[in-house]
Design a protein around this nucleic acid. Sequence first.
DNA 1: CTGAAAGCGCTTACAG
DNA 2: CTGAAAGCGCTTACAG
Lengths: 372, 372
Amino acid sequence: MSGGHVAKASTVYDVAAHSGVSIATVSRVLRRPGDVRASTRERVLASVRELGYVPSAAARGLAASRTGVLGLYFPSLDAMEELGDAEFLPAPGAPLVDLVVDMPDSGVVRPPNLYFDEVLRGSEFEAWRQGFALMVGVGRGTNPTDMVGDIAGRVDGMAILAQSVSAEVLEHVSRRIPVVLIAGPRRGDDFDHVSVGNTEGMQALTTHLIDGCAVTDFAYVAGPVDSPDDAERHAGFVAALHSRGLDPAQVPVHRGEFSRLRGRAVASTLLDGRRMPRAVVCANDQMALGVLDVLGAHGVSVPGDVIVTGFDGIEAGRQASPRLTTVRQPMVDLGRAAMRAILSRLENPDQAPISLRLPVKVLLRESSEGHL
Amino acid sequence: MSGGHVAKASTVYDVAAHSGVSIATVSRVLRRPGDVRASTRERVLASVRELGYVPSAAARGLAASRTGVLGLYFPSLDAMEELGDAEFLPAPGAPLVDLVVDMPDSGVVRPPNLYFDEVLRGSEFEAWRQGFALMVGVGRGTNPTDMVGDIAGRVDGMAILAQSVSAEVLEHVSRRIPVVLIAGPRRGDDFDHVSVGNTEGMQALTTHLIDGCAVTDFAYVAGPVDSPDDAERHAGFVAALHSRGLDPAQVPVHRGEFSRLRGRAVASTLLDGRRMPRAVVCANDQMALGVLDVLGAHGVSVPGDVIVTGFDGIEAGRQASPRLTTVRQPMVDLGRAAMRAILSRLENPDQAPISLRLPVKVLLRESSEGHL
DNA sequence: CTGAAAGCGCTTACAG
DNA sequence: CTGAAAGCGCTTACAG
């Protein structure tokens, strides 16, 4: 029989005794096999197999003062909020299947959260390529401090994707390991930082709407007031207007909070207004999709009557009807770049602070088409 | 100035010296604050802050013989395959924004991979709730053995989502830590195992098609031959037919490999055939969406002419037109249940093997509607 | 190529 | 409530 028998785990000592060598040799077989005579090596390896020996990363990490793990900290994931303390395990004997008629509007729209998922994927991939494991932590309201510190103690370096982490914590943690900040604003000049061309992307898109689609009459749908991404994007929007002699002060700004639902609310407000703008520029795709929802339901033609644009490049925007013109940011690469930055800092602790900005891509699609 | 200065990290010894206590007291302040006099505690905490002390999880793990980390191993993520060795960092001076016309068929469809993402989320959430950190590892062709072993050495227990991990590795690893298998078939009776009601869900759905929609004429679109999920679902399909006196041998089975593209190919084949079945039952949503793509393009009415169903409950199926009738499996709960199983095993090593099966939900939507 | 020994930074009984 | 000391399981010069 196999599995399930977690007895006392064996150690280097067990393996050494079993194969008649010293623990140093066992360690060498595992770390630098080339340094050990072939016959010895085989003997040790056989013992490893026989004893089911798995090296303790804790001991290894302590001895080598290097964990081989990179960390990634996220702020709370929206999608997580739904998860609560409610019991999710089925009651014993509960039916394994339930049949329901799923009406079009039933159920909550699951926030895609592609952003985090993709940054995570990129991070995991790059960490793996570089021979590191990845530890992920998600902050959940309570105390980012504890969580961040917890991860910091376990890794050789970490990336933090959150403006919610205080400067003190960043300072504290960075005294132990390299910390790289993902997205958000640069925090002081001392932290390594990777981000995307938020401003540049929005400026290019807006400029295209003005030059290519002859738009002069905008509405802007912004995200949360405390979002640095939102601020950067809005700055790009404003810059484009300025550069073309339009007055940003004339453009009404609505707060959409980055959510599809709020995007819908904003669209309803717009419809109630005295007249529609020629283009509704949204600070992210979710809100733009919400705007499309409402305009579509009210028979407003997009892009015929109103042009709508987003930002992020999520898959849902590509499947929307009309497909959403947007700015795609390289989320996977953001994660990869963050891991690279950590490694780079690890190798060369004294190099100048890294501030890497990744390029974005303006994707012109049907929600602004006919004006290319 | 702050950040970026990774000097020699301070240790308990530094904190002890700085606050004039023993290292034991420093440890207590951090572990069981209640056992230390308030004034002492404050003094130590002040030193901790001042020195930027972050406890080493490696040392703690070694001393306490418990890492406080739970592991999660995935087989290779499809979406990861795209990522290669290609340089992804922008060349210095490269433009931060690029403007392109994104045609409807341009670009690769990013596989949503919601399955893994959701299992990961559930795992992270539950681990966090229980006071553990989560380490993730993604197998990538090379050697799952190494990766699994690597994770195993770093955690107190781990969940494995992969039929690709050999019995030997499972056996080996499980001698050190508790291992719980996610989805797939039960592997021997000794491993803890969590899965979903694949068979039951497909059986219920198929039974509904027969009883509620009067379908007697099916086509079945299966996944890869080596997929245990696929096997279970097909078994449910067959069972439903049997229970209603229909002959499964009469039903043509097409291999769709779980992909949308292959689903399309299968639909084309069906269209070329002498006649369409009344219902096309697919072993997952992706394939069903592919079938919908082609039927829609050829003016075949769904569900009027042909009923199409899927399995998984991905978001894209809910946004399809017509919305896809499917069986939703609780992917987030699968992750949560796996973590719970590990913890349960950790607390009670001698309990009988866990085999938990999570309930699924048949979601009746428009792709089979009008026959409720 | 191999072994003896120190040391990594904590936790935890055991005394007091 | 606090301290001295052993020990967790490795790695790594240092000898040989």
